[in-house]
Nucleic acid binder design. Structure first.
Lengths: 159, 159
DNA sequence: CATTATTTAATTGTACGCAATATAATTTTG
DNA sequence: CAAAATTATATTGCGTACAATTAAATAATG
């Protein structure tokens, strides 16, 4: 480290561009993991994973969705959802029934157990709110910025 | 809005506040996937996955790290890193050598191929910058907010 | 200095996430 | 109406993530 490196602060700008701490994507990646770790103990009580919880959230908002509908709501494809829904079915939270009027489709429906979980899972909301420990305005601004970024990144996808 | 106390709006706001953390989490989750999709075609050219690219970013910043060191930098454990590093070694980007002075440790070192890739990676930055379609200032602000959130979520973890 | 405890990687098992493919049902079309 | 194209879901294969376990090396302890 002696002598062979005369780099001064001014020269470091380009080198720093590739630094981990500078990467927005890494910040997002890290927070996603942090959220996952925060949710895990809360969801473990119900035997749910975070993606499974997302599916239930979607169904609590609107029951009787097709696999495709859930996929569009969550940004997941059948390769992810088919086995996930099978596990949710095995666990007794949802049932999957072929649509009689279009047998290609599978209608995913909440069971009583799945529907009943909504009330119990309400406590998760408050726990997550507490864990974030930031103001509503901050959270709302961040959500909005991420929403824009998500849309922007999606735009560049279809090329 | 301040000081105006409209009963209905208050109810709505309370519901929003409760759900905000959850929505923020989903926004982060979605953007993480969106970034992954944006990076994929860029990294495919080099035969890299995004987590593998993260490891190289860490090594470009500081070469000769232990598995544990890389894990701390990226928030990953040996269960993820061991097979990943094996693939990076097979692909010729890094080499793994047992530390002679402490044979428990494995020192991960960039090969010439791995080190040489850094120059080409600047092109990825430009592409990502374009895809994000926001100013440096915006990106920096978002990164800073995510950094804070990550720290905050981490605080609540240690119980 | 031998035993125990801790540390570091690797391994095993489960669950995403996604590309590519397969399969069956429905539409489109010629 | 029959052949081709499209659509919806499921399956396969690969690469993360992460908990739990294992194995080997080092450190701490009596």
């Amino acid at each position: 480290m002696t002598g062979d490196n005369d780099m001064r602060k001014d020269d470091l700008k380009e080198g720093d561009a590739l630094a981990l701490g500078q990467q927005l994507c890494f910040a997002v990646y890290s927070v996603a993991h942090a959220f996952n770790r925060t949710y895990k103990p809360l969801l473990d009580k119900f035997g749910l994973t975070y993606p499974q919880y997302l599916v239930l959230l979607a169904l609590w908002q609107q029951d009787r969705m097709t696999v495709k509908g859930i996929g569009e709501a969550l940004g997941l494809d059948s390769g992810t959802l088919s086995p996930l829904l099978k596990r949710l079915e095995t666990a007794g939270f949802v049932s999957r029934i072929r649509d009689k009027s279009d047998e290609r489709q599978v209608i995913v429906t909440l069971t009583q157990k799945g529907a009943g979980l909504k009330a119990e899972a309400f406590g998760i909301l408050t726990e997550i709110g507490k864990a974030m420990g930031c103001s509503m305005a901050e959270a709302a601004a961040l959500r909005s910025a991420l929403h824009d970024l998500n849309h922007q990144l999606g735009e560049n996808q279809q090329s």
